[in-house]
């Protein structure tokens, strides 16, 4: 299978299920049978790493390398070195920005973000945007693309955390903000945006606090 088919959500899923490190090895750049499969793989894994790092994972736990099938010795070397590095970092929650079980929760959110269509679609557009341009013919610089992508990652992480919290129980904005460590003003904007899109609705007003709840998707 080509590394280009590697789903970023799979990577997140492996961490959710307790993997301490993931090494992805693809063909050398320029040697791809499908022309750009390994470049796409790199884009996808860079995005997964950025998202997971945003969730609190040590980014060194996810590595991408290039080898050909004729480089067995190098392959062994790569593996040994990576395993040694992960051993030094330690198990999940040690050597990461946050510890378990909080990290586990956040990784689940990252998995949802990576599994939802937005990030997957946008990262797939990277080669097109950089070479030919978007639907308006605007060619992106790498910097522009990365800025946009980081922004979507931040939004997606916030949105999925809020939805996950509201699925557990209805909550007021200020309580959500405290629980999720997102500034209350931003939380409010996210909640209102989710309401506009039909994912969230007003549940009740308790004292001074409007309380919002998760709105299950209607069956079509």
């Amino acid at each position: 299978m080509c590394t280009g088919r590697m789903d970023p959500a799979l990577v997140a899923d492996a961490f959710v299920h307790g993997a301490d490190g993931i090494l992805v090895i693809g063909c050398h750049f320029g040697d791809c049978h499908y022309i750009s499969g390994n470049i796409i793989a790199k884009h996808k894994l860079d995005m997964a790493r950025q998202t997971l790092a945003y969730a609190g994972l040590n980014p060194a736990r996810l590595r991408f390398g290039n080898l050909s099938s004729a480089e067995a010795a190098k392959f062994a070397e790569y593996n040994t070195e990576f395993v040694e590095q992960i051993r030094q970092i330690g198990p999940l929650g040690a050597g990461d920005e946050i510890g378990m079980p909080k990290l586990g929760e956040k990784l689940k959110i990252a998995h949802q973000a990576l599994a939802s269509p937005k990030l997957r679609w946008v990262i797939g557009k990277k080669p097109v945007f950089l070479d030919d341009g978007n639907k308006y013919g605007e060619v992106f610089t790498e910097h522009e693309f990365n800025r946009t992508l980081s922004w979507i990652i931040i939004d997606e992480m916030a949105i999925h955390s809020i939805l996950a919290a509201l699925q557990k129980r209805p909550a007021a904005v200020k309580d959500l903000a405290e629980e999720l460590q997102i500034p209350a003003a931003d939380t409010l904007k996210y909640v209102l945006a989710l309401k506009r899109r039909g994912f969230v609705e007003l549940n009740s007003v308790e004292g001074q606090s409007p309380v919002y709840k998760y709105k299950a998707e209607e069956e079509c």
Binding site: V173, K174, A184, L188, V191, S209, P210
Partner: peptide, 9 residues
């Protein structure tokens, strides 16, 4: 609501 925290003033 208040833009800062969504509370009713």
């Amino acid at each position: 609501i208040r833009p800062q925290d969504g509370e009713i003033p």
